[in-house]
Amino acid sequence: MALGGAEPVIDVRGLRMSYGATAVLHGVDVRAHRGEVVALLGPNGAGKTTTVEILEGFRKPSAGEVRVLGVDPLTGDEAWRARVGVVLQSWRDHGRWRVAELLDHFARFYPPYRTPFAVDELLELVGLTGQARTVVGTLSGGQRRRLDVAVGVVGRPEVLFLDEPTTGFDPEARQAFHDLVHRLTDLDDTAILLTTHDLDEAEKLADRIVLLVGGEVVAEGSAPELTRRIASRDEVRYSLDGEFFVHATEDATGFVRELFEQHDKAIGDLEVRRASLEDVYMTMVRKQEARP
């Protein structure tokens, strides 16, 4: 959670990005503090990957102010680079290397700046101890993703970017991955920014969710906050003289009070359902997609 007064390690204001005439980001604001996990949640094409690539310093934004560890990623030097961990989406590179060999190779770049993870310790952390001598190209999808994470954190980064970390995972691998992310934040107080299109994942992992739809932040907060703030329409189910009704309302309490005042004992089977975050998410995505 955000510590009072502490500088955010990720600070993005008014970020805009266009590819030619196509605007992808329309003024995005994102902040993250030390030890905080922030999820950039949105459907495909919302601009999540573009945002992360700008933060990683791999892409130049059209406009806006971007600071990662107080530095503009475009001008970040190698010392800055050493403090930033990047988990990439690619899966075809270094296919002939062995798992431990590759981690050792990446670890060797860090000592001039900071002490990297010992390879054995890192393999244990991501659950690849048994695959230390496996050729990278023969790993399963889930194992490969865990290796990607290991490569991303090998330098014990202060900020870690994870782009769609669990795409293609089965539920078991996903659970193991979530445990890993929690261990990382507990371990080194790392700030993590992850992108996902999976609401469930954002809810489980993130302290704060930034809902990005169509290149705009449409909502931001913890999962309960988001639900409270934007889940305005609740659902009231009841029966009146044995007939069943469903009513959507922005004021469930007021509606129920009125219901009892008017019908008193004729009301039965009362049920009030708060809209779930999922309902909210789907509504927002649909609303955005319906726009011209």
Binding site: F58, E78, A82, V84, S90, R92, D93, F106, Y110, G155
Partner: peptide
């Protein structure tokens, strides 16, 4: 090939990785 299969990008993410 290394530009298109992500090898170079991965090396860029490591301090002085491009040199290595």
């Amino acid at each position: 090939t290394d530009q298109s299969d992500g090898t170079l990008l991965r090396m860029k993410a490591v301090p002085n990785g491009t040199i290595g």
